[in-house]
């Protein structure tokens, strides 16, 4: 099962990379910069997914006090920090050439930065607590709290007037030509698979470390 999942994820990632860098045409307005879309958006979606997993597993841990939920919650919090950090970085590398600025004080950018900081805080609380049990409990509480930011991040571009453009794919329709949709879909799938594999491996590592 494990080698299969890892192999499938690696294959998906390579196909995604190929589609993103070779197959996808340049955009009529942004040119080659559009290729950053295929790493920025999947990273953001993976961050949402990791945050959701962290929130759910943490809530279950607080309820059931089963260590296995804590392992998953910790993996989710780490990956939420990782992927939201990646989203911020790729967003900046996209914003500088296209918008002309690395950063803007608009709602989407600030709420994403808040998301990143909250998960960093969540991980620090766990590591710095006096005893491990307390650390698990406290970081679970922070993980539940931090998830409140996810819908705010996602809908900030709809609710508020931001520099960041609105969603290209929503219930109102798809504003993405099919040439861009396929690489985006494959890359999103690949990142979610990567998230799943990393979650499973991180949780397994945590259980091994506790057993020891």
């Amino acid at each position: 099962m494990r080698p299969f999942a890892v192999g499938a994820t690696a294959a998906l990632l390579s196909v995604g990379l190929f589609l993103a860098l070779w197959v996808s045409p340049p955009d009529s307005y942004q040119g080659e910069y559009v290729r950053i879309l295929y790493v920025h958006v999947p990273a953001a979606l993976a961050a949402y997914g990791a945050a959701a997993v962290a929130c759910g597993a943490s809530a279950l841990y607080l309820w059931r006090r089963d260590l296995r939920w804590d392992f998953v919650g910790r993996a989710g919090a780490e990956l939420a920090a990782l992927f939201s950090g990646l989203t911020l970085l790729t967003g900046m590398l996209w914003g500088k050439p296209v918008w002309g600025v690395w950063w803007a004080w608009d709602a989407r950018l600030v709420t994403t930065a808040v998301l990143f900081l909250l998960y960093v805080g969540c991980l620090l609380v766990r590591d710095l607590a006096d005893d491990p049990e307390r650390g698990r409990r406290l970081s679970a509480a922070v993980a539940v709290l931090a998830f409140l930011d996810v819908p705010v991040v996602h809908y900030s571009v709809v609710w508020f007037r931001t520099l960041h453009q609105g969603p290209s794919i929503s219930l109102q329709g798809v504003k993405l030509a099919p040439e861009f949709l396929l690489p985006l879909a494959v890359n999103t799938l690949a990142y979610l698979a990567l998230l799943g594999v990393l979650l499973a491996e991180r949780a397994r590592l945590a259980s091994l470390e506790v057993e020891r």
Binding site: L82, L86, T90, L93, W94
Partner: peptide, 15 residues
């Protein structure tokens, strides 16, 4: 443009 694109992918690979 390609330098920016590759920088973004490099970031992802590195992280």
């Amino acid at each position: 443009p390609w330098a920016w694109v590759l920088a973004a992918y490099g970031c992802a690979a590195l992280l």
